[in-house]
Design a protein around this nucleic acid. Structure first.
Length: 320
DNA sequence: CGTCCAATAT
DNA sequence: AATATTGGAC
């Protein structure tokens, strides 16, 4: 295997078929300033690490929770974590008493353009009325993705849509009042906005609805119902999820994929070069998600070195 | 109860 | 700024 080392340039249509070859050695992944400590250690608690080292360790999350609607997370108080087997990597010796750090928090999910694309497709195909976190999550079929993750992203996405509504005409969709907005919206800009997304988000009415501002007076019949679920289960199982580790934080981990052909979660780390694009990484996109037939992704470069952000990306199975 | 949503915190 | 977490409403 050849490893360019610096590269990070992923190319080829089906780069994922050889993603593991691209995996840099662990040492390569770690920028010089970071020290490694045992996974458990780092994960178990917040390590003060006053000493200087930001301990970064990688752990595996098995996500059994995500899709299973029946699963319950503990709503109560502090720990909402879905703990799971830690990656007890040491095959030889260790055995024993490892403690699965309970009360562990998941690493921050990073919404990659691909993930977002999946998100948008799901919403689009669901129709606004059914596009609620739980449903979206299920349709996305991304392993390890939680309802909370989706909810949070959805909230932001709605804000984005509203912002867009305010802007009529004038330049292309990228028109932004302030530079800040432009920067902010890059992620969202990477995905086409399905026609009827404008105005009309918010009150869903069914099932929970909370204090929605105002529901739609009437409900336009757009898309019937697409049994997308079935299709999704079939095909698309490769969406990239990413985990970000704040240099500041001491918790870390990565989503694992328990099923499918890969038994080891793969991860690819490093900031993304501005232009190094991965091309066409999206799955074949079967009929199910075919709504948007645009060329997709565009990667955004990491900005400023201020926060040396390491991004781990890996590929969940997508089991539901 | 479970979920949604908006607000708030990190 | 981008996510996570919390709290109130159904």
């Amino acid at each position: 295997m050849k490893e360019g080392g610096g590269g990070g340039v992923v190319e080829g249509e089906n780069w994922f078929s050889r993603w593991e070859e691209d995996l840099p050695s662990p040492e390569e992944l770690m920028p010089l300033s970071q020290s490694l400590i045992t996974p458990h250690l780092a994960l178990a608690f917040d390590i003060p690490t006053a000493a200087a080292a930001n301990a970064n360790s990688i752990n595996n999350y098995s996500s059994s929770v995500a899709a299973a609607g029946s699963s319950h997370h503990h709503p109560t108080a502090t720990a909402a974590a879905t703990d799971f087997d830690d990656l007890n990597c040491s095959g030889g010796g260790g055995g024993g008493g490892d403690e699965p750090a309970r009360t562990l928090k998941r690493p921050r999910l990073v919404w990659t353009p691909q993930l977002h694309k999946r998100f948008v497709d799901a919403v689009a195909h669901l129709g606004i009325k059914n596009a609620v976190p739980k449903t979206i999550m299920q349709l996305m079929s991304v392993d390890g993705l939680t309802r909370e993750n989706v909810a949070s992203h959805l909230q932001k996405y709605r804000l984005y849509l509203k912002r867009m509504q305010g802007l009529t005409s004038s330049s292309s969709s990228s028109a932004a009042g302030s530079p800040a907005d432009a920067a902010t919206d890059q992620l969202f800009a990477s995905a086409p906005i399905p026609h009827h997304f404008l105005r009309g988000v918010g009150g869903v009415g069914g099932g929970g609805g909370g204090a929605g501002p105002a529901a739609l007076p009437h409900e336009p019949s757009f898309m019937p119902f697409v049994p997308v679920a079935a299709a999704l289960q079939h095909h698309q199982q490769m969406v990239a999820a990413a985990v970000q580790q704040q240099y500041h934080q001491r918790q870390m981990g990565h989503f694992g994929s328990p099923a499918a052909g890969f038994d080891h979660g793969g991860f690819l780390a490093r900031g993304q070069p501005p232009q190094t694009g991965m091309h066409r990484m999206g799955p074949p996109v079967p009929a199910a998600a075919a709504a948007s037939s645009y060329a997709d992704d565009l990667e955004e470069g990491a900005r400023g070195g201020a926060g040396g952000r390491k991004v781990l990306t890996l590929f969940p199975t997508g089991e539901d």
